[in-house]
Design a protein around this nucleic acid. Structure first.
Lengths: 344, 344
DNA sequence: CTGTTAGCGCCTTCAT
DNA sequence: ATGAAGGCGCTAACAG
């Protein structure tokens, strides 16, 4: 295919017999310009189908009006929602967005950062990969004074703004709900233990237990690597625990869905035989049978808030000091957790 | 926040007392360069943490090595998969990707195109919005000789390459399956009738019917606007048809899931009372109860193929003549369609 | 082998 | 009110 030649200011200038600077001024609606020349230029530009070359513009003003986003994976509904929120706000504020996915790989995350920095993004919104347990690449961004912020999958020590959900409170709510429904032996299925959300949700779990005077039982805290195999293994393991736990709280919905499916195959009834709850409120949570009790975390809102704050900082509307924005989650009670109530 | 100053070639040059062009050559690993100077420069660059300014580079060589993607919505699992495929291939071939969503709005689609063109993308991958029923903006791209290609939601007349699924065959397969299971009165729930996939899938539906000697019954072809309300209305409408149809084929999974949920509320048993099938194989399809028979269309592969072809054209590896790539779909039989078999 | 020069498209003093 | 000139960071002839 031939390379589409773009109309430039130079061509407009030549056609109208004016200088390039005059065209530039006219297109910026500069006041110090004869109204008539301005009108002519704007008209010609439209007629010739002129589009500014953002590359040249960015190079000149050394601001690309572009933001970079890194998420673990774009096919996750939650992260897709975040991205959607980010884009909506960014676009209305005149920014473009470049999205990268780390595929949960640290190496990929580093590569993404390089690319985006090279692309001269004005700022970055990063959600860390599952693998990320070393943080030099982030400190390097910090040292280079590149604007960025962490959301959802954050690392607490890095001195930049962070947007998170109140994971502790969300987990607390759902475990409290299980306790209130009469369960006492409650399993927590954790993801990899160095994950931020694994830790935070465990904290909420423990807090609820202690509030109800239930002693922590380490044999009821299980870990999955979040693969299908890992999840199924946990599902089977739980059934083998004696005496059988009354309820299970899985760190994220996908785990709960795998567990639920596996149990149904084994003839276990939910919630009659055992109660189940997840976290995230994925679209699947509402449609599995029985519908899954979970904790909803609005990704779209998170994206909007995160990018708003970053842009505020970029535009000088907010202080440069890092802040922590914590969003609230909502308990969504569905059938999967109605253990004792369903026995009546 | 302070603007992070990037190291430039100029600075490397000054530090080493060489000219900028020498630095440029060294960094490009040009052969016509003293090995020693090259080594020195590369080392200094690494030490000074030099990163090329892609903006400047793009402006200079008038290729941005960036591709633009426009999808109706990123939160759709299918489109997210496409994007994932696009990114993976694009990145390994040295391209970045800018993603936009039209939110199913024509106006937004046009705006996205403007932005991406202004950003000097080397090519575009577009999946049309639901609203898009006028195509000047695409012909304009064509006239301006901007490389682009259409995928999934295409418009057939535009002389550019297109990547689609074999929708006719997919629909044919699933309806044939329903017919083979003994159903004869089969409803087709269509989306808006000017949608490409609405038409194509109807074509497959009709072909299967006629092959089995079943006459087309216009009262069995229903249309939803794809909103929840529209879907529920259709669900109720079907139950009111006398005599009741034996099977229902919904154009896309979300519609089937809404219908299924609504029917379950009304006490209708699936597939005993009526069989149901969808199209897309969304993640939800596998986990609803009963699991939904559907047609899987691998979005990731579509994305990969689409971008591969576009890049081949850009890099001169493929002819500029538009081609049509048609991907095959796979029938996924699950419980929701076992109508007569379950009666035995 | 390396430096000089020119210019990608745009914006912005500095003159006039 | 407008034009000329310089430069953002980089590459690519063209000289030597």
């Amino acid at each position: 295919m031939k390379k589409g030649r773009q109309v430039t200011m130079k061509e407009i200038a030549k056609k109208l017999g004016v200088s390039v600077s005059t065209v530039s001024r006219a297109l910026q609606d500069s006041p110090e310009l004869h109204a008539e020349t301005k009108r002519k230029i704007v008209e010609a530009a439209k007629e010739m189908n002129y589009r500014p070359n953002l590359l040249a513009q960015s190079l000149r003003i050394s601001r690309s009006k572009t933001l970079g986003v890194i998420v673990p994976e774009i096919t996750s509904h939650f992260f897709a929602s975040c991205i959607s929120g980010i884009q909506d706000v960014a676009n209305t504020r005149g920014y473009n967005v470049m999205i990268c996915q780390s595929n949960e790989l640290l190496s990929q995350e580093k590569a993404n950062i390089q690319t985006l920095v090279s692309s001269q993004v004005d700022g970055l919104l990063i959600s860390l990969s599952r693998e990320t347990n070393t943080y030099e690449h982030l400190y390097e961004l910090y040292d280079r004074e590149i604007n960025f912020l962490l959301f959802d999958r954050v690392q607490e020590d890095i001195p930049v703004s962070k947007v998170t959900f109140n994971d502790v409170s969300g987990a607390y709510q759902v475990v409290k709900h299980l306790l209130e429904n009469g369960s006492r032996r409650i399993v927590y299925v954790s993801g990899p233990e160095d994950l931020y959300i694994s830790k935070k949700r465990k904290e909420g779990y423990l807090r609820a237990l202690s509030e109800f005077g239930v002693a922590e039982d380490p044999s009821l805290v299980l870990v999955t690597d979040l693969t299908l195999e890992g999840n199924l293994q946990v599902a089977q393991h739980i059934l083998a625990i004696d005496p059988r736990p009354e309820a299970v709280f899985c760190m994220i919905d996908p785990v709960a869905v795998d567990v639920l499916t596996e149990w149904k195959k084994s003839g276990i009834r939910i919630p009659e035989d055992i109660a189940l709850a997840g976290f995230t409120d994925n679209p699947t949570a509402a449609v599995v049978e029985p519908p899954l009790t979970t904790v909803s975390q609005p990704g779209y809102d998170m994206g909007k808030l995160a990018v708003s704050h970053l842009l505020d900082q970029l535009d000088g509307l907010a202080s440069e000091d890092p802040i922590s924005i914590v969003l609230d989650t909502t308990l969504v009670v569905r059938k999967s957790s109605q253990h004792f109530s369903s026995k009546k």
